[in-house]
Simulated assay, not measured.
Amino acid sequence: MERELPDGLSADQLPEHVAFIMDGNGRWAKKRVMNRVKGHEKGAGAVRTVVESCTKFGIPYLTLYAFSTENWQRPKKEVDALMGLLTRFLRNEKAQLVKNGVRLTAIGELHRLPEEVRRELDLAMEATRHNERLTLCLALSYGSRSELVAAVQGIADEVSQGRLRAADVDEEMVSQHLFTRGIPDPDLVIRTSGEMRLSNFLLWQCAYSEIFFTETLWPDFNESEFASILMDFQARERRYGKVLQS
Results as ranks from 00 to 15, higher is better:
K94A: 12
L85V: 08
L138E: 02
L90W: 09
Q96G: 12
E116P: 00
K99D: 13
T105W: 00
T135C: 08
S141V: 04
N92E: 15
V79T: 04
H130V: 06
T128K: 10
E93N: 13
T128F: 11
Q96K: 14
G143H: 09
A106W: 01
Q96D: 13
D80G: 00
F89A: 11
D80C: 00
E120C: 08
E132W: 00
L140I: 03
L140Y: 05
A106V: 02
D80Y: 00
E126R: 14
L82A: 05
V98N: 03
G84E: 12
E109M: 09
L140H: 03
G143Q: 10
K76M: 08
S144Y: 11
R133M: 05
R112A: 09
R88N: 13
L138M: 13
L138W: 01
N131P: 02
R133G: 01
M83T: 06
E78A: 07
L85P: 10
D122F: 04
A127I: 11
S144M: 11
R112E: 09
L136S: 06
L140M: 05
V98G: 04
E115I: 10
R133K: 15
L138T: 01
K77A: 14
E78S: 07
I107E: 05
M125H: 08
H111A: 14
L123D: 14
G84A: 05
S141W: 02
L97Y: 12
L82Q: 08
E126Q: 15
H111K: 14
V117W: 04
T128R: 12
R103C: 13
R88W: 04
L136K: 04
L110H: 02
V102E: 07
A127H: 10
L123Y: 08
E116C: 01
R133A: 14
L110C: 06
V79I: 09
K77P: 00
N100G: 00
G108F: 03
S141I: 02
L90C: 11
L85A: 11
S141Q: 01
C137H: 00
T128H: 11
E78K: 08
L134G: 05
K77C: 00
R118S: 08
R118K: 15
S141M: 03
E116V: 12
P114F: 06
S144Q: 11
V79N: 08
E120F: 11
G143S: 11
R103P: 01
L121H: 12
L82G: 04
E93S: 15
L104H: 07
M125A: 13
V98Q: 14
T87E: 15
K94D: 02
K77G: 03
A81W: 01
I107P: 04
L86T: 14
L85T: 07
D80H: 07
L123K: 14
N100V: 00
V102D: 08
H130L: 09
H111I: 04
M125V: 10
P114R: 07
D122L: 12
R118Q: 15
A81L: 07
A95H: 12
S144G: 15
T105H: 04
R112S: 08
G143I: 09
L123M: 14
T105Y: 00
S144P: 10
